[in-house]
Amino acid sequence: MAIAKRQPKSTSAPLSPDPKHPLEDLIRMERIPHIWCPGCGVGTVFSACLSAIQQTGIDYRKFSMVSGIGCSGRGAGYVRLDSFHTTHGRAIPFATGIKMADPSLNVIVFSGDGDLFAIGGNHFIHAARRNMDITVICVNNFIYGMTGGQVAATTPHMAKSSTTPFGNPDSPFNLPLLAIASGATYVARWTMIHSRDLTLAFEEAIGHRGFSFIEVLSPCPINYTRRNKIKTMDMVRQFHNNTIIKNHANPSELDIDFQKGVVLGKFMDIDKPTPDEILAKLRNQ
């Protein structure tokens, strides 16, 4: 039973009086509008992810999306794929189960910084260590958005949140450094405004054999920028103006500081056997 592979986007937009949005075949349109607030970047990142899925040309049935809990965690609920909205922090082990039980699937974890790096941090480092062949997309909006703007493991030092009303005393994670130190074999960082690079990075990450991680900086207009008296558009302009693309930059210099400029790009792309491949080899011995 074979179905025709979807055409890449460039040829799929028919010119009729009322053509559809080119991503509609991958979106559960009956669930739109989504819950993301005006100005929230999650929708943009989600859209880039769907474009990347289209552009791989791979049969959609060979994809599965897994999310945890939070604003970004709603991603799995809008994609027209076999999709799973799991418990808080546990998207990666769920994805690990899917991938190890059926290695023919492309498993994408689409979730947020709180979900992946606070409550789910342990799973992240271990999946990276194993070089589990999944793609982890982290929408980093610097805050717990859905619960109303509490401090996260990615909130900048001294930034205000509802639980750090006088400023965040802690320092945030440098996520690409964490990923690389843990053993991730593909690591990149972009912002939601770099959606073309982002789409290409997602496509590359899906094609990458092994653990791929992409951090995407994104504004939270309601719970981060407003509380910190930043105009959301100014933050997005910062993404555009105060960032430097520097592939293979030194991971320890990837802390997020818009004053000195935030480094974007691809920081790691190496080849290493994956657990499912190794297991398949062992089975054949």
Partner: peptide, 18 residues
């Protein structure tokens, strides 16, 4: 297609004007 890529709401897109 940049507007199409950026739009968080799938509300805008462009097609080649032939």
């Amino acid at each position: 297609h940049y507007c199409e890529l950026l739009c968080p709401e799938f509300a805008i897109y462009t097609v080649a004007d032939e």
